[in-house]
């Protein structure tokens, strides 16, 4: 898997791992997941959706509201997200082993 996920794309995949969503729903979920740290504008959101769809990580699916386009993770998208999460997990384990979370003042926030 050579596809390099940007920060926006990672959070979009994460939001779609929970359930299928339309654009506005993705935007709100990403904002909530990151406590407002990542706020996607329409251009960035749909630019990312385009790239993810072209790479077959997400696909357009039917949804409750016919006026909107809904997106869901594909199997390839699940694999890509799992691989990315595994990378973060490894990094976090390593940081814990070296007491880096405490050193950077992150231990309390993450517990």
């Amino acid at each position: 898997m050579n596809f390099q996920l940007s920060q926006s794309e990672f959070y979009i995949l994460l939001s779609l791992a929970i359930k299928r969503r339309h654009g506005y729903d993705i935007m709100k979920q990403v904002e909530a997941d990151t406590a407002g740290q990542v706020q996607l504008g329409p251009g960035t959101l749909y630019g990312s959706i385009k790239r993810l769809a072209e790479s077959a990580l997400i696909e357009e699916v039917a949804g409750d509201d016919r006026r909107r386009k809904y997106y869901a993770l594909t199997e390839e998208g699940r694999r890509s997200l799992a691989s990315e999460l595994s990378r973060y997990d490894d990094a976090l384990t390593l940081a814990r082993q070296h007491d880096l979370l405490q050193q950077f003042g992150l231990a309390r926030q993450r517990q």
């Binding site: 329409p42 749909y46 909107r68």
Partner: peptide, 14 residues
């Protein structure tokens, strides 16, 4: 053509 309508929709809601 692919995303214009959706983007307008999202912008309006925001």
């Amino acid at each position: 053509q692919q995303f214009g309508e959706e983007m307008r929709f999202v912008f309006s809601e925001v």
